[in-house]
């Protein structure tokens, strides 16, 4: 899923400082699951904005709602009226959600309340960890299901490098060495031999931005 973080309140305040009627839109998908953009955060952000705007001459009016999937224009129909009654929208979704909102409601400024970080998962200990860089040319079949492009800070396709120490990466001693993980996984899979093959450079042309996939419908 997409992992995102809430921006600092100062940054958010800066974006919306000239607006009074603000509508906050949460998303019920990834950002809810990574605990940053669901209904609970929508309400906390409204509270925080109300408190920080307490000395303004004209009071801020904050309303909020969580859409089950913000990047789906059809789901956005339900807030047509709320949007009409607002001067600005704060989106608590990944960049895709923010852009869907601003595309759909072209007459009103839509601001991102989040910084979209990466594609990742929970480590069950309260952290979310990046797992995939959406490179467009997946090589997980070669690496025991562990992505070196993302999880090796150097993105090495043939590892480990000499900086692997006690199972951790020299670039960040909290990061496990992806190539050690790959080695161990391949051992479990009885495929250590395969690691002797040299992986060719990836085909980055498949990573052309903006990406486009035709689903045939």
């Amino acid at each position: 899923m997409v992992i995102a973080e809430i921006k600092s309140l100062a940054d958010i305040n800066e974006m919306i400082k000239s607006f009074r009627k603000i509508f906050i839109v949460g998303c019920g998908e990834c950002v809810s699951v990574c605990l940053t953009g669901g209904q609970k955060q929508v309400e906390l952000l409204s509270s925080a904005l109300r408190i920080s705007g307490r000395n303004d001459k004209e009071k801020r009016i904050l309303k909020g709602k969580t859409i089950s999937r913000q990047c789906e224009p059809k789901f956005l129909e339900q807030i047509n009226k709320d949007i009409e009654e607002s001067d600005a929208v704060l989106s608590m979704a990944c960049g895709a959600g923010v852009q869907t909102l601003s595309e759909k409601f072209r007459k009103i400024p839509v601001f991102p309340a989040m910084d979209t970080k990466f594609i990742g998962v929970s480590d069950e200990a309260g952290n979310f960890i990046e797992m995939c860089s959406a490179c467009g040319d997946c090589i997980l079949s070669l690496t025991g299901g562990i992505c070196p492009v993302t999880r090796c800070p150097k993105g090495l396709l043939n590892g480990p490098c000499g900086g692997s120490k006690n199972g951790k990466c020299e670039a960040n001693p909290e990061t496990p060495c992806a190539w050690l993980l790959i080695y161990e996984k391949m051992k479990e899979l009885n495929k250590l031999e395969e690691l002797k093959n040299i992986n060719n450079p990836k085909d980055w042309s498949k990573n052309m931005r903006p990406g486009k996939v035709n689903a045939g419908i």
């Binding site: 600092s8 309140l9 100062a10 906390l44 509270s47 925080a48 904005l49 408190i51 920080s52």
Partner: peptide, 8 residues
């Protein structure tokens, strides 16, 4: 944290 960020 929220209070602090909100200036309280």
């Amino acid at each position: 944290r929220i209070l602090k960020e909100s200036g309280l």
